[in-house]
Design a protein around this nucleic acid. Sequence first.
DNA 1: CACCTGACTACTAACCATCAAAGCCAGCTC
DNA 2: GAGCTGGCTTTGATGGTTAGTAGTCAGGTG
Lengths: 165, 165
Amino acid sequence: MSITFAGVLADRSAWRLENCSIAMAMDVIGTRSSMLILREALCGTVRFDDFARRTRISEAIVAARLKQLTEIGLFVKQPYQEPGKRTRDEYLLTEMGKDLLPAVFALMQWGNKHLQAEEGGPLRLVERSTGEPVTIGPRTESGRSLDPDGLAIVANGDWVDSPSS
Amino acid sequence: MSITFAGVLADRSAWRLENCSIAMAMDVIGTRSSMLILREALCGTVRFDDFARRTRISEAIVAARLKQLTEIGLFVKQPYQEPGKRTRDEYLLTEMGKDLLPAVFALMQWGNKHLQAEEGGPLRLVERSTGEPVTIGPRTESGRSLDPDGLAIVANGDWVDSPSS
DNA sequence: CACCTGACTACTAACCATCAAAGCCAGCTC
DNA sequence: GAGCTGGCTTTGATGGTTAGTAGTCAGGTG
C-alpha cells in the first residue's frame, strides 16, 4: 500500500478513528453546492448573483449555502454600493475559506484526469509568473515534493519510531 | 484575491463553467461515506468488515458504496481465502483511487486546522524516511512548492499571455 | 409616492444518503 | 445435513439537499 502507519497506529486491528477531520469536514462542506460555490469564491467571485449564475445553482440554494458557510466562518460579508444602487453585501473568503484551496483543486485535478472525456478538462492551474503547470500534492515543510509512497501516518503526539512495511 | 485568470478567462463577466471537474467529482465521491471509505482504503484497509468497523458506517452503506466505487473504477475486487473460511473479495484501490490521496488528505488537513477543538486532530502525515511533517498543497512539476498567491487559472488549450491583477 | 429591480426568503415537492433491523446465502464445522 | 458465521442485500423510516416557484423587502427612479 501507499501509506504506512507508525507509532500507536502500527497495529490497527482494533482501532477506530474518533473525531475524524475528514468526517467533520464533509459534514460542513460535503455538498455539491458548497464545493461549487467555493470553486467560484477561490476564483474571485464575491457577489450573490455571480455565484448563482456561474455555478448554475438556484438562488435559493446559493442563499442558503452562503448563509451557512458564513456562519461557519468561511466567508465574511462586507457591504458595498455601486453608484445609483443600494448597498449590498459581498462575500469574501476568510483565511479558513482560502485554506480549502488545496482540497478544492485536488478534486478538480482528479476529475480532470479521470472523469473528463477529452484530455484535461476545462481548467487547469499554472504558476502565474512562469506558466509552469501546477499540481496539488504532498510536500514537506521544507518545500520538497513527495511521492504518495513516501508518506506515513502518525497519531497526533506520536513520533515516528519504526515504520513497518 | 488569491488566483488570477489568464487567456479567455480574463473576462469572466459572461462566463459559466461547463463540464466542471469539481461538479463531476462531487457527483461521484461527494458523500461522507465515500470519503471515509477512501480514507480507510488509502490507509490500507481492504476488507468489508474492516471498512464498516473503522468508519462506523452501517454495513448496508458500506456495501452500496464499495459496489458503486468499484463500478466507477476506484476499486478492484480480488478474491482471497483464509484457511478454514470461504473465499471473499478484497477491495483494492486502483490507480484512479490512489490519485484521490491529495483530495482526501487536503480535506483532513483543513479539518485538522479549522474544525478540531484541540490542536491538530487525531492524525497527521509525515515523510516516512525522515518524519518531517507533510502538507498537501500546490507545487510545480519541477517540484517547487508554491503559495496560493502564485497561482493562475487558465482554460485548457490556452497559454498564459498577460495575467491581470 | 407608485413602480421597478436586485437580493434574497419561504414553501412545496421531489430525491438521495443514511441507519436500523431483518433476511439471505455460501461454505465451513460438527 | 443441520447449524453457524461472515459478507453482504433488502426494506422501511428519517433527515438533508436540491429545484422550482412565488413572495418579500430595501432603496433608487420617475
